[in-house]
Amino acid sequence: MNGQKILQTQNNNEWETIGTIKKVEEGIKPGVYNIYLAKTPSDKNRYEGQVIHVDKENSVFYQQVNKDFIVHQLEAVDGKPVAGKDVAITYDGEKATLTLIDTPKNKRILKI
């Protein structure tokens, strides 16, 4: 998508572009993300993965965990999610804790 982010929704069996087309956040790989298939988190679970999209209008954000997508409520999380960042979200009942995961992206290992 040439480094652009397009949000679409299905309306009467047709895809409709919603919002504006903007530059994708740093760290997100190009591709199609089917966040409409996102699952709700279960209590007392930990989710580690990249934040794909923050939807302030609907007060939710989407996280990719392995091949699945999880939709989290913004008001349930005590931190501020940033799209493109790897985070760990731990639930304890209705409240969640967001922790930034610092992963080295281009680390080279020299084997002797």
Rank of each mutant, 00 (worst) to 15 (best):
E75R: 13
T9H: 05
G27R: 03
P41I: 08
K67I: 13
A96H: 06
K22L: 10
T90V: 13
T99G: 03
V54P: 03
Y91H: 01
D92T: 04
D92R: 15
K95M: 12
Q10V: 11
G84S: 08
E25I: 04
E75F: 12
K39Q: 09
V82N: 08
K80G: 04
T97A: 13
E26A: 07
E75W: 15
I52C: 00
D102C: 12
V87H: 05
Q8L: 08
L7K: 11
N12M: 08
V24Q: 05
L7M: 04
T90G: 05
K105T: 15
K85Q: 15
D92K: 15
I101E: 10
G3Y: 08
M1C: 02
I112R: 09
K44C: 03
G3M: 06
V87P: 07
G19H: 05
L100F: 13
P81G: 03
N13L: 11
V60P: 06
V51A: 04
H72Y: 05
D92H: 12
V54S: 05
G19P: 10
N58I: 12
W15I: 06
P30G: 02
I89L: 01
T90D: 05
K111Y: 09
Y36M: 10
K111V: 12
Q10W: 04
Q10G: 06
N13A: 06
L98T: 07
G49H: 04
I18G: 00
A83C: 01
N66T: 08
Q64R: 14
I28Y: 00
D102T: 15
I89C: 02
Q4S: 06
A88K: 14
K105W: 13
Y62E: 04
V32Q: 12
Q50A: 05
L98F: 09
K44T: 06
D55P: 11
G3V: 09
V77C: 14
V77M: 11
Q63M: 15
Q10P: 00
Y47P: 06
K111I: 14
G19W: 01
K105H: 11
Y91N: 04
A76M: 13
S42T: 10
N34L: 14
K22Y: 03
K95N: 10
F61W: 10
N2C: 11
A76L: 10
D92A: 09
S59L: 13
V77Y: 11
T40M: 11
V65M: 10
T17K: 01
W15A: 01
G79T: 06
F61Q: 02
K111N: 06
V65Q: 10
I18A: 01
G3W: 09
T17D: 00
V32W: 08
A38T: 09
K23G: 03
E25Q: 03
E57S: 12
N12V: 05
G19F: 06
P81S: 09
G3I: 09
D78M: 05
K44V: 00
K67M: 08
K44Q: 15
N11S: 11
V60S: 07
H72G: 03
D55R: 11
G27C: 12
F69G: 01
I70P: 00
A38N: 02
T9D: 05
K107C: 03
N66F: 11
Y33V: 05
